[in-house]
Amino acid sequence: MASLASILQALFLVPLTLLPIINPVGVAPIVIDAAGNDDRVLKRLSRQVAINGWVVIVASMLVGTYVLDLFGISLPVVRVAGGLLVAFSAWTMLTRHEEADEVQTAIAEDASADLSEAEIVRRSFFPITFPLTTGPGCIAAAIALGAQFPRQPLPYVMGAGIAAIGAAITAAVVYLIFRNGGRLLMRLGEVGTTVMMRLMAFVLLCIGIQILWTGWTDLNRMVP
């Protein structure tokens, strides 16, 4: 039972950590506009964004720490930088909406034409997958999760496999929210959507400060 509980905890650690940072409800309106309110395009676009997001998350967890070692960057520094980015993004969401509106309008202006498969793949990565969905804060958090994998071969493979499944759950939630975003937003309404985005932004701000504080504490422990 203890091992099953630990497996379940590790399985849901990834979505519980990353989904507040990703904030798919806040990104959903941009995805809907990018699809030109076409249900068929929205389905394909949502699926491709979910696949792209899964690849980015898994790659960050598996190779992120090795890239940091290559450049001599410590994990506490990544946590401080990631915390700053997350907190800044959350503060921007709380206080400023002009830039997001400009991005959303620019995407919507080019969404009226029927999108080809190649165009959907291109648009699904930039700007929807990166930086709107799996941005720097999400990548930094994924690297921090990957740094907790055991270094022994068999436990590492097991931990990486469980984390990959957790990333798949995260991608599935993102897909469902993007795919059904129109219905969700219609039920919430303009006021409900604004309130939801503000609440998620506040939670995201708290997460960013927590990541920053954890990294700062680890840096202080490294000082002789």
Rank of each mutant, 00 (worst) to 15 (best):
V195T: 13
G83C: 09
M93G: 15
Q48F: 12
E119V: 03
A163L: 01
Y66M: 10
E190P: 13
G192Q: 11
A201K: 12
D38Q: 08
V174Y: 04
P150Q: 00
D33Q: 14
V31I: 11
P15G: 06
V203N: 04
G64C: 03
R151L: 07
V77P: 01
M186K: 12
A35M: 09
A10T: 10
P131E: 04
N52P: 13
S112F: 13
D38E: 09
L62S: 02
V103C: 08
F12E: 05
V56H: 01
Q152D: 13
A164Q: 01
R96V: 10
A81W: 00
Q9H: 11
V121P: 12
R183P: 08
T134E: 12
W54I: 05
A164R: 01
A144H: 00
G137L: 08
N180C: 09
M196F: 13
G161R: 06
V27G: 02
F202N: 05
V63C: 11
F125L: 04
D33H: 12
L19S: 03
L18R: 11
I22P: 08
I165N: 04
T92D: 14
A35K: 03
T214V: 09
L75F: 05
Q210L: 03
K43W: 10
P153L: 02
A100D: 09
I57Y: 00
V41Q: 11
W91H: 14
T92R: 13
A160G: 11
M186I: 06
E109I: 10
G72I: 04
L115S: 15
E99C: 04
I162Q: 01
L188F: 12
F12K: 09
I143W: 00
L11W: 02
T129M: 09
E102G: 10
D101R: 15
I165G: 02
A87I: 05
A81Q: 03
V191K: 11
A147N: 13
L145V: 03
C206M: 12
T134K: 02
T105L: 11
G181V: 02
G166M: 06
L94S: 12
V77M: 09
